[in-house]
Every structure is written in structure tokens, then in C-alpha cells.
Design a protein around this nucleic acid. Structure first.
Lengths: 228, 228
DNA sequence: GTCTATACAACGATAGAC
DNA sequence: GTCTATCGTTGTATAGAC
């Protein structure tokens, strides 16, 4: 699996998701004209993530967001009913995209090693394409209201579970030798997260997404193939 | 090395550091009476870290900090001259403590494997004892002013360098088989960081600091001993 | 050294014109 | 659907009494 191939298959555009969100009646978006609404909502979400990742969601004022979006305060409130709802919309949009892609990738007929390799590649490639959202979601999670926080924890544990299931299955089939699948899945996850959390470090060192993926895989494989 | 032993040797109390800070003329602390000042400053720092870790440094109002410290706004400003300086004091205090302990632990006469093992234990044990500060420092770093941010990056890279030097030395001596020492050090660091960043997860699963340390070590050893 | 009272800026949110 | 103008609240910071 190459990143360039993955990128091509990653066709789910943000526009589609924004269209879904505008149609959805669970939020309080007043603007229903799709031609203008979808484009603006996309801008609002992307700009909000960019500013938040620089100075934090709480420190980002809505005035600043408006001026960077070319919108007035009143105009913004046609899309959201409060700053808290903006956060919900950001999370909702990212989660929808994430789950769609995760549904696509998965193949239970593969060998344990191939399954593990594919899962690692998929996660790293996905977090590369959605890096700003992954970063936002990780760093802002502790400020979420209870409901959003629980959704966030759920998503975190779901990802980890994918790995622990592959590891557990591999151990039962005798392909892997490892002690604790849950601790191992957790260790893998921490390495995957480093890729989207410490972007400055890897950029500075000119490490590509494929360099990183290969290293994580060789690291993990050494452990699951050995007998420790 | 056991955690209980480490804890006993970790005698450097926060009081000593607070005493140093109050004496230091680089900050603008007005209160110079040590009997009352040291105790209050310690409370301010600890409370500020606690609140910040819950809701973020920026979202913590000084009013809230004051009321939890049993201090008035005017009283607080005897210890700091601005909210930004409070952040500097928190960082300064943690870094002083960190560097003191890191100086103590280190033994160049050990074998490569023992050195690596000791470095991992030291880092995990240290982050266990200073968990609130480590968490604060990691999560708030992007909001720091330029100067503090550079200090923070420096400390991050210093820790990583300790590992990459041990790995490089081990490779030269033929003890370790690994490709890229820097990428490997980075992977190790991400696992170490998970311990103080995802405390809720490990608490929930009843994983002790020693369980975690042992698992990281077995993970790392499998990689450096193999030939990938 | 610590308090109360207050100044002043910036925030989120809304009303009403267009 | 978007604008300008404005409201009330909350934030950091300071002045002056004790």
C-alpha cells in the first residue's frame, strides 16, 4: 500500500460531509441554501481548526474567526448558534469522515501479519490526510463537554480495539508471540499518534509518511515475532 | 530499579525549588518573606497546574485560582506580575526539578542494554512523580510565548537525544541491531509520553507504573536485539 | 503582605436594518 | 443571508485602605 494510492482512493471530500451536516436537522444551522452554505461552512470549519491548532480553541475569538473567513459576527451566527456548537460541528465532521474511511479499509481474509501491517498503514495515512483534525481532536478533547468527551474516548478506544483484536487473533493462530495484546495495542497507538502530534519534529527531520510507517511496522513486527 | 526505591531517593522537595525561585531576582515576586512566601507560592503553582490540567491554562481565570488558593486578586499579584509570568514560573519550577534528577541518574560504565533499561525506568518513574507538570508542559506548550516554547522544545529534544546516543553507542559496540537511532529514540519517547498523557486509560485498566515500564522495555528490547 | 473596589479591554451573543 | 451596532458579562490588572 502506497500513500499516493491511498490518497487517490480518499475521495470522500469535505464538501460531501458539509452537505450532510447542513441537511442534518440535529444542529441549528439556519443557512439552508446549499450553493452558498456548503462552501462557507467548509471555510468556517477549516479556518477554526487552523486557528485553534495555533492558539487553542478557547483562545480563538469568534471575531478573529469571522475576519479570517471574510464573514461578520452576525453572518457566522447563521451557521452556528454558539461557540460550543462550532466545536461539535468540527468534531462531527471529522468523525463522519474518519468512520467512512475506516469502513472501507479492512480485510479479514488476510494473514495476521498483513492485517497488522495494513491497519498501521491505514491509520498513519489517514492521520496524514486529516492531520489538522486529528491534532485538534486530541489536544482539545479535555475541554469538551461531557457528551463530546465520551464520544472522543469511544473513538480512541475503538481504534485501539482494532489493534488488540488483530493481535489477539494472531496470538491464537500462533502467528504472534506477545504477552499483553492490550498493552501492545496501546504502545502501537502511541507511536501512531506521535505522527500527527509532533509534526514540527518530523518535518524538521525530513521524515516522510512512508519512512515513518515503515519504521513503526519494523518496530512492531520485531516485537510480535519475537518471544519476550 | 524499583519505583519505591526511586521515590525514596527523589528527595528534592518542591519547597526547595520554591525557595530558590523566591530568592531569584529574575522574576518579579514581591513577597520575600520565606516563611509565608514559599508555602503560598507552592500552593499557587500546584493549584494552577491542577486547574489548568482540567480546563486549560487559558480558560483558568485568575479569580478562580485565587479563590481555590484562599487568596485575593491583590494578594496573588504579590507573587506574579502577570498571568504570563505565572506560566513561566510553573515551567521554571518543573524544569529545575527535572534537570536536578536527570543529573543524578546516569551511569556510563554500564552495558548498552543496562543503560537503555535504566534510562527508560528513570524517565517513566520521573514522569510518574511529576505527572501533573509533565502533562501541563506537554499540553500547554503550543500556547507558550516564543521564548518558553524554545526552552520546551530544547528539553524535549534533550530527552530524545539521551536515548539516541545510547542507541547509537550500542550499535557501534555491536550490542544493538537497528536502522535509525533517531527514529527509534522518537518511538521510545512516544511510548514514555503515553504514560503521563493517558493517565485515565491506564488507571481504568489498573496498570501500575512497573507493569508499564516492563512492557515498554520488552517492546524496545525486542527491536534493538533483532535485525530488522 | 493582603484586602476591597474599581478601571478598562475583550469576549460571546443578539436585535434590527438591508 | 449578511451586515452594523450594541448589550451584558467576564477577563486581567491596578490603586489605595488596612
Amino acid at each position: 500500500m502506497k500513500f499516493s494510492d491511498f490518497k487517490k482512493e480518499f475521495k470522500m471530500s469535505m464538501e460531501d460531509i458539509c452537505y450532510e451536516i447542513i441537511q442534518d436537522d440535529n444542529n441549528s444551522i439556519k443557512v439552508k441554501n446549499e450553493r452558498v452554505g456548503v462552501k462557507k461552512l467548509k471555510t468556517i470549519i477549516e479556518t477554526a481548526i487552523t486557528i485553534s491548532n495555533r492558539k487553542g480553541f478557547h483562545a480563538m475569538s469568534l471575531r478573529e474567526l469571522c475576519s479570517e473567513c471574510g464573514l461578520s459576527m452576525g453572518g457566522l451566527y447563521g451557521y452556528i448558534s454558539s461557540k460550543d456548537e462550532l466545536l461539535e460541528v468540527i468534531q462531527d465532521q471529522g468523525r463522519r469522515l474518519l468512520l467512512k474511511v475506516m469502513d472501507t479499509y479492512g480485510n479479514e481474509k488476510e494473514s495476521s501479519i498483513d492485517q497488522l501491517t495494513r491497519a498501521i498503514y491505514t491509520h498513519i495515512y489517514l492521520s496524514e490526510l486529516m492531520q489538522p483534525w486529528f491534532f485538534f481532536s486530541y489536544m482539545e478533547a479535555r475541554f469538551f463537554i461531557r457528551e463530546e468527551q465520551e464520544k472522543s474516548i469511544e473513538t480512541e478506544l475503538l481504534t485501539e480495539q482494532i489493534f488488540s483484536e488483530i493481535l489477539e487473533m494472531g496470538r491464537l493462530k500462533g502467528d504472534f508471540k506477545l504477552g499483553d495484546p492490550v498493552l501492545t495495542a496501546s504502545a502501537i497507538k502511541s507511536m501512531l499518534q506521535d505522527w500527527y502530534l509532533k509534526r514540527w519534529k518530523y518535518n524538521r527531520r525530513n521524515i516522510s509518511v512512508d519512512d515513518y510507517a515503515k519504521h513503526v511496522i519494523s518496530f512492531v513486527m520485531a516485537f510480535v515475532k519475537g518471544d519476550c
